[in-house]
Design a protein around this nucleic acid. Structure first.
Lengths: 133, 133
DNA sequence: TTTAACGTTTACGTTAACGTAAACTTGGGC
DNA sequence: GCCCAAGTTTACGTTAACGTAAACGTTAAA
């Protein structure tokens, strides 16, 4: 079984970004695709990393933060000290995420209100129209 | 009853930003504080706007998006056409927010996993220590 | 064989969101 | 009267995250 690889434009299409973006991520050390001669070959692991990067960006993380987040998954934690600092990182990350969720929920409530007012207003002008006939 | 106002450094302290940031927001047309001679006087409405801006920023909105979002609240919607486009805006905004919530939930699950592995690993090394005595 | 589609490197340009510094005014405390 | 803290304007600097353009290699189809 040969591991499936992807070209750069495959991934660009799939994720709705430009090839420039993907090369930029490599330049910044976020991904490390293999090479076949000059050409880059992206493994499925590379693909997943890109996906995780874009997910991070959607909620406003910088690229640096995205890597930091992704790197929490792989074990560079040898001793207990590093483990503890990782746990601390996890904790503060979680708090930030929860704050963001609260922010989003507040904004969603706001949208509900606005939409309610809109529909009400539309309904009113609709009744007016009918009465006018 | 005199409406309470705030100085620029009051608000900077309250929100943990610099005065430069607040002036920058004004320069960009996001807020419009009154003046007492040269000095800016911030009403409570100004304060709220800043709060909403910072909330938007926390989930990765640009300043432009923040204004757009805030402006949905006040009624510049006279005719039915504008009303409908506002409703459309609300819809797409809601979808983006929901996607962000999904992203956050996924990341929170990831953090749970990482933390689990950490604690497990810590527990193991702790048992090892005990066995060594 | 040429051309079209895809790939590459190198490098300069751009936008957003402030930081930082200089130079000035202004109101209150000693 | 003097000084200091807080305010002001003006303007150049900085970082992130790409966009855009030039100039070039490769391969498969017409």
């Amino acid at each position: 079984m040969t591991a499936k690889t992807h070209t750069i434009s495959d991934l660009a299409r799939e994720f709705g970004v430009t090839t420039r973006t993907i090369r930029f991520y490599e330049e910044k050390g976020l991904i490390h695709p293999l090479r076949e001669g000059q050409k880059r070959l992206y493994s499925n692991a590379d693909r997943v990393r890109i996906k995780l990067i874009l997910r991070g960006k959607r909620i406003g993380m910088t690229l640096r933060e995205c890597v930091e987040f992704i790197d929490m998954y792989d074990p560079e934690h040898n001793n207990a000290e590093q483990l503890q600092s990782l746990i601390d990182d996890v904790k503060s990350r979680r708090e930030r995420l929860l704050q963001q969720k609260r922010d989003i929920d507040d904004m969603l409530s706001g949208l509900d209100e606005v939409q309610g007012l809109c529909e009400e207003s539309l309904a009113r002008s609709h009744r007016k129209k009918l009465a006018h006939t």
